[in-house]
Amino acid sequence: MKRSIPFLLLIFLITSGCKKEPAEEPVTIQKLVLSFDFQVDGKPLQRDTLCYVNEAGNRYMVNEIQFFISDVRLHCHTAEPLLLDAWTSIHYVDSDLPGTWRWELFDTIPAGDYDSVSFTFGINEEKNQSLMFLNPPESFMFWPEYLGGGYHYMKLNGKWLDTNSVAQPFDFHLGIGQIYAHYPDSITGFVQNYFNVTLPNSSFTLPVNGEQEITIVMNIENWFRDPHAFDFNQWGGDIMQNQEAMHLACENGWNVFGVKL
């Protein structure tokens, strides 16, 4: 009997130890996918044809669009915004490269209700560092060091009919702006033009082990509409050394993006 006491004690300790361990939370994996689309006036973008008229009355066409979005955040009124940057926080979208039209985020995202989605259009000052992209196509977006360095936020290339009805090229390029003492030389400072976008009507519920795909739509005509009617005849075909024009464009950016859930 004496010999069996330690044995019983051991059994007791083992079984009581098991009881003390908390129950393991089941592992769940939720997934968010962002896809990208381009529209003009609510219809799919038709490229390479002078079929659009902007707010200022310019007839225009779009040839290609390339842009960066970064720092996607999920907002929930009961918690701090969730920044999705565990894997990569910057994504490149190119109208010529279908492989860039989809971004799978591999962050750990709790299941639940989310009120909205926001992101940075372009790349913030801290992250927009020259030579951080060595490979094309991202590296082709470099913004010259003399003009502030880093990368273009966007290249929107196309043509508009000028006052003589001649199709003139435009390069609606956004990135770091410059302050000039004597234009176009003597740069005395730089302006970070990236801005935050909160997608309207972007609430969603992410179920346990579920996947949510959100299509981010760029409504191109809004770059030229609200609050500033952007007139190519006034601003010309290039703006990356014209902070005033880039500033107007960025202010127009507030409602350029929408969602399709």
Partner: peptide
């Protein structure tokens, strides 16, 4: 170099690279 990499200069860099694309072409 400044002329090469500015739109108001010679505007070469979009097609021919520069400090961020040392291949000096996009191919």
């Amino acid at each position: 170099f400044i002329l090469f990499t500015t739109e108001e200069g010679a505007d070469c860099f979009h097609c021919h690279g520069g400090d961020g694309n040392p291949l000096f072409t996009t191919h």
